[in-house]
Every structure is written in structure tokens, then in C-alpha cells.
Simulated scan of single mutants.
Amino acid sequence: MSTTTLMTTTTTMNTTTPMTTTTTMNTTTPMTTTTPMTTTTTMNTTTPMTTTTTMNTTTPMTTTTTMNTTTPMTTTTTMNTTTPMTTTTTMNTTTPMTTTTTMNTTPVTTTTLMTTTTTTTTTPITEPPILEERNLSFSMDIDFQESYNNPESSVYKDTIDAIQNQSKVHISVPTTASLIGFRSGSTIADYSISATSLEDTEIVALQTGVLTQMGAIYRILFDSPDPLKFDPSDVFISVRVTVTCGPPPENLNLDDWRAEWRRDNELIREDSLHSFSKANGAAILTVSNFFITDNGLYECKLIDNNPNPPGVNFRQRGDIELRETPVIRVTPVRIKVECVDQQIELRCSVNSPYEVEFLNVPVFGHRFPS
């Protein structure tokens, strides 16, 4: 019998592969095959990425089929058999069959949720220490020159060396010592000391050390922190006034000295109105008859008589001004009154800047008993 047969076959295939894939297979074969495929896929993916993959895969499949006929799937065959036109066959295939499968794979978007642990490291901020600063100065009894401010000058080098050396010796904490500069009056050196703490006793020791070191090279002026002493402190015209200078501090070792007095930078010479003396290690100037011309800024300098080494001179200053004598006017100066109950007016005035004060009498007057 010659028969042309189109066979529709439903094949169930159980295949285990290492992929889990849902595949729609459009296969052009002499057969229409519906194949449920169970795929096991093991994917170990650590990927912080979103991946889109398009796969066009041609997969060769080998199927073994046992049929009651030996016939290609799509063919014109002369068969000596009776075969139903539509059969549902469970095939145990032993016949090699090569199938070409075109797979249209839907792009797979893989979203990986990543948990990020952020460690914040806080670095402690160390604030710089608060420094205490002292501005100090000392004077050298030499004529000022602007060239002293040149760092290459010998005066500059000697001064900065003394300040830094004595800071290391007398200040107990790390110290920054700097020379600010020189100015006139004989020659004044300004410098600063900075440290986390500065004790007054250490500052005094530092100043003394600087003067001692510089005094071995230059004649130094020690300026007393205390002013000259005037007696009386309130001076009126024609009174006798004494001015006391010193005594100098013992650590200056200023034992043999001579006094030099100036008023408004003018040298005072001893005469009938001005006399010099010494008492208890101090120099004394006596003004026997104080006039308005004696007003002004007084300066006393105790000069070391020993020239080797140059040493230290002591200086003290103070100013005084003659006070205007009060002029008091009273009216009436004299009056006769009857011993009866009555009020008597007494007027009293004084020149500025003075004011009138009645002692033991009410401000608005006094009522005398009859």
C-alpha cells in the first residue's frame, strides 16, 4: 500500500539539565512536538549589576525514539502497515534524532539587593592650648640707633640670645620668646614671652636674668615699677618738697652709685633751691621753695660707678604739679549783732576746683541760741 501520511505526534520528554529555563521552542520538523522541560539551574551570582541578556541559542538535541515504524518525521513513505492518522504515543526513542531549536529568550533583569554597612570613624579634634603672653621691655643706657633693629646687628643678636637663654632657664614650661624691636628712650628693647602658664615669680627671675646677661655687655637701665615719692603729695606754692628715689633692688648689686636728677629731661643742678643727699640707700632731692616752674616730670638715675663690667643703672620717674592755693572769701568778716532771736547770714566762697564745706554746721546755716 502506498500511503502518504502526515503524522502528528505528542512526545513527552523528561530531561534534566543544569539550567532552570522556561523555553518556547519553535521547531520546524516533520513533527509537532509539545515538550514540557524541567530544568534545574544552579546559579552562583554575586553581582552588584543589572544584566540584560539576549540569547539566540541553537541547541542540538539528541532524542532516541522507538517507533513501530522506521520513518523520517516528515517524509513520503511507502509503509506496509496500518497506522492511525492521529496517534498519541509515548515514545521510548532509540532512534537518533537531531533537532535544531531556535530559542528566543526574554531578557532577564536580575536585581540584587545589596546591604551596605557604613562605618563612620570619628576623629577627636584636639584644640590648641591657650597660651598666656607677656610683653616685657628693658632699657639700655646707650643712644638709640635704627640699625639696632637689623637682625644682623650685634645689639639685636645679643638681645635675642639673652631673652631666649633666660627663658629656658627660668620658665618651667615650653616657652616662645621673641624680640619685638628697639625704640628710643635711651634704647628700649621690647620682647614677648608666650607659654601655657606664666608665674609672676618666674617672670621676675627672667627679667633679672636678661638684665644680668645683657649687663655684662651693655650698660642697662632698670626701670622701677614704682614712681618717685613726693612729700607732701599735694604741693602748694612756696612749700618745701622732698623727692625720694630708690633704694634699688638688692639683686641688681648696685651698691656704689651716684644720682642724676632731671626735670622734663633737663638736668637739675644743685643750687640754693635744690639740694642732693642720700639716706637708707636712696637718693633724695630737696626743693626748698616750690614754685610753678618746678612742675613737671622728674627722673632719677642711680648710675653704677663701677665701669667693668658695664653693669646696671637704676631709673625711677614721677610727675608732680603745683596745686593752686585756695582763696577763701567770707562775708561779712565782722558784724555786731544783738543777743536776740534772729537769723544772721554768713557767706563763704572759694576758687575752683575747691569746694566749701562747713564743719559741724548745717549746710543752710546755723541758729545760735539766744
Rank of each mutant, 00 (worst) to 15 (best):
T3M: 14
T8Y: 13
T9S: 15
T11R: 10
T12P: 12
T15N: 12
T17P: 02
M19T: 07
T22P: 06
N26I: 03
P30N: 05
P30Q: 05
P30M: 02
T45S: 11
T51L: 13
T52R: 08
T52D: 07
M55C: 05
M61F: 09
T63D: 10
M67V: 03
T69P: 06
T76L: 11
T83V: 12
P84Y: 00
M85E: 03
T87D: 05
T88I: 12
N92S: 11
T94Q: 08
T100D: 07
P107E: 01
P107Y: 00
P107T: 06
T109W: 00
L113S: 09
P124M: 01
E127T: 13
P128L: 09
R134W: 09
L136A: 09
M140D: 01
F144T: 04
Q145A: 14
Y156G: 04
Y156Q: 01
H170Y: 13
P174I: 00
T176E: 14
L179N: 01
A189P: 02
S192D: 04
I193V: 10
E199Y: 12
T201Q: 14
I203T: 11
I217L: 15
R219L: 12
K229P: 00
K229N: 11
I237W: 04
V239R: 15
C245I: 09
P248I: 01
N251M: 06
L254F: 10
A259K: 13
R269I: 08
R269T: 08
D271V: 04
S277N: 11
A282S: 15
N289I: 05
G296H: 01
L297T: 07
E299L: 11
E299D: 10
L302T: 02
I303G: 02
N313P: 06
Q316E: 15
R317A: 08
R317H: 03
G318W: 01
E324C: 03
P326C: 07
R329K: 14
T331D: 13
Q342P: 00
C348L: 10
P353R: 04
E355Q: 10
V356F: 01
N360S: 07
V363D: 13
V363Q: 15
H366G: 03
R367Q: 15
S370K: 13
